[in-house]
Design a protein around this nucleic acid. Structure first.
Lengths: 243, 243
DNA sequence: CCAATAGTGTCTTTCAGACACTATAGT
DNA sequence: ACTATAGTGTCTGAAAGACACTATTGG
């Protein structure tokens, strides 16, 4: 009988208690990228609690099941706490879960990566930028497997820069095409062809000229652009190739 | 002092008990695709327990933190239980987590998608194929948000078929180029150009002729191919376009 | 012979790569 | 005038799309 099944299900749910089971830890971690001084940087923060107390780590933490509606909201909250930044580019990388990454036990972490403009960031305490080398390696010894998470995120970023307009999101509101090209070159790790790059970006329809505004560079004036409102990530049918 | 920090950390870990915290449910779900009768199909299984007892759902379940080393192993185990299949194409889709998808409470699920050849499957009880329509929708009302998970996985599959050799993995050991092209057409939902398709696949270097073997089709003989051993997923620099 | 599918050849189109050219500002 | 960077024009080449052609088998 359907009614009786419903009744049984209600009883099952009333009696259900997650603490009757052996469960993994579940957390969220965020790799926050920016570009500073022609280098890719990642935001790291010093841990104030065990485990790995005092070590540097990427921002993250546990889901607050009372307050968070969904996991992206958890990520956004953590990001805002560390950067004061409301609406960056934020994308899920995936989940990593195994029995060895956390000394507290079996751990699953859902990792996100974000792109921000460095000037928009308001640091919380014990937070700073750390630059990556050309292969996505960081200088510091980090807590947990965070160095690996950063490497994977960096690979995804580099990969995605080959066929999308993702690099736009590290720039401030106003920027020149040369600045944008330089961002791509830093992320991709190689030189790009100027006229080809401009053709491609313009066709992507993701930026627009700011009428009458230009910027003084080392030599001559350069046209300023802004991100266009409609599309914030264009996918190309063909990859760009650096070097 | 370093030694004292180590001591403190040891004590912290000894005292640490996950059940002192409010934690979400964490599970793994797998969308298993194949092609049968010119249609994309997904493997579904009937739930034997609450919640959603008796409903159809995709395979999945909780991580066994005593036995599973990592989360991919959990997925592989679940897949093997339902299909008897050892080494299919298996890729992580991502994690979905929110407070409404599971009546037991806040739930995070790590979803995988797999491609298998239908003939290799040995069904467990209460398991069957269900076909998708052109937009990735399934007929049945499924448990939880599984219909959405399937849709997302299908979008990823269709997308990935545009620039990789992924469709290879639904075929049996030996196949013809026309059969492979048909698989792509079914996944992509449109017709492909024959000579262009062949050029592309051959260049991908993922298949090889089986010398001297051919297959009788409705009219004439067709060369048989097998997957080549070295590369099992080739990424093209440019997308293919259906229709 | 015809029907139907396997398999090939070739012209067109699209878009990235290369590279040289012109334009403009400070010194 | 010189230098450095902004910005453009145009040729080349790689690979996809279109489409017609030939090849092979059963009836």
């Amino acid at each position: 009988m359907k009614a009786s099944t419903n009744q049984q299900e209600k009883e099952f749910l009333t009696r259900y208690n997650i603490h009757d089971y052996e469960v993994p830890l579940t957390s969220v971690d965020i790799v926050i990228f920016t570009i500073i001084n022609e280098e890719v940087n990642v935001l790291i923060t010093q841990r104030s609690d065990f485990p790995f107390k005092g070590y540097w780590a990427i921002p993250g933490g546990f889901i607050d099941i009372k307050k968070d509606k969904n996991i992206k909201q958890t990520a956004q909250k953590k990001l805002r706490e560390k950067t004061g930044y409301g609406a960056p580019y934020l994308e899920q990388l995936g989940a990593i879960g195994n029995d060895s990454r956390d000394p507290r036990g079996w751990s699953v972490t859902v990792t996100y990566f974000a792109l921000v403009n460095a000037e928009d960031i308001i640091f919380s305490t014990d937070t700073r930028w750390s630059h990556l080398d050309k292969d996505g390696n960081i200088q510091q010894k980090l807590a947990f497997d965070h160095a690996e998470l950063i490497q994977e995120a960096f690979q995804r970023l580099r990969n995605k820069a080959q066929y999308t307009t993702i690099a736009l999101h590290v720039l401030p509101e106003k920027f020149t095409l040369s600045e944008l090209q330089r961002c791509y070159e830093i992320i991709l790790g190689g030189e790009l062809n100027k006229s080809g790059f401009r053709r491609r970006i313009i066709k992507g329809n993701v930026i627009e000229k700011i009428a009458g505004e230009s910027k003084q560079t080392v030599t001559r004036m350069a046209q300023l652009y802004r991100k266009s409102e409609d599309e914030n990530l264009h996918f190309y049918m063909r990859e760009i190739y650096a070097k």
